[in-house]
Amino acid sequence: MVINGKLIVSSSPHIRSVESVQSVMVDVLIALFPAALMAVLLFGYRALLTMVIAIAVAMLAEAIWRRKSDIFSDGSAAVTGLLLALALPAAVPWWLVVVGSASAIIIGKQVFGGIGYNIFNPALVGRAILVVSWGGHMAGDIWPSPQPFAFGYDAAVVTGATVLAAPEKAVTFSLPEMFIGNIPGCLGETSALALLIGGFWLVYKGHIDYRIPGGFIGTVFILGVLFGGGFYANIFMTGLFHVVAGGVMIGAIYMATDFVTTPVTPAGRLIFGIGCGLITMLIRLWGILPEGVTFAILLMNAVTPIIDNFTIPQRFGGVKKSA
């Protein structure tokens, strides 16, 4: 018997799952589709424009930095771009999207060496930079109101107050309305329903760990019930309000679960989720900013290495607290 050519020799295992970084990222994009769709339905063409610009700039920035012509590459830049777009208000000017998307990729990711090495969630770095730079556009009291199914309407014209800027007024929106997403807010954050659908897809595909969103949303709910301001007759309603209002849902399901910037240990992920919830509520209730999800997740990203070091799981058959 003759073997033509040479054999490949490698370490075991010799079979690999077909899953790749790219396929994971595509799954995340699929998961974000309902939210993106809702954004377009609610906020019209401006939403679509923002998303297209953000994704295009993100992919372009990454391709240029890496000097590769493969624009889509592993898809992570597209995910970053889309996430950033979904975390922007509908009426932001185009140049703001460009700056945000480019800084997300460059300052949030590439300076650390690219995918896998970034410490902070790139999309949130981009968003935080925008919030700090152009607070008026990003976190003012004036937000475009949604106009369901009016694709051609210009979001910049009609405005309303975000529910978080003045929670007392929130009662004007019913919780079901908030759940569906028919309220003023950032593009992708208003529809808890669409976000949940995508979230279930990610859990089904095994890409996210329920502990992070669970810990995050659970903490926000409990703190909302206890300290939420009690502007609903039922304090549990207040808790729910804090969960569906603002960026908690999108943050908990898509941003706090970003692989690269969150702990790898199960216990660490729970701590991470709870920490995000705590800081979010701290900022919401006592800070001057109406919303704290972005900063909460960034802060927890920063302590992720420390969490990882303190939550090394007990090995199978290991004695608890062994030397």
């Binding site: 300052i107 930079i129 700090v132 730079s133 152009w134 607070g135």
Partner: peptide, 18 residues
């Protein structure tokens, strides 16, 4: 012109110097 407020603030100082 709407300047990039970031650079006037502490985070911007670190990032710009970096």
């Amino acid at each position: 012109f709407e300047p990039m407020g970031l650079f006037g603030q502490p985070p911007g100082a670190f990032i710009a110097l970096g």
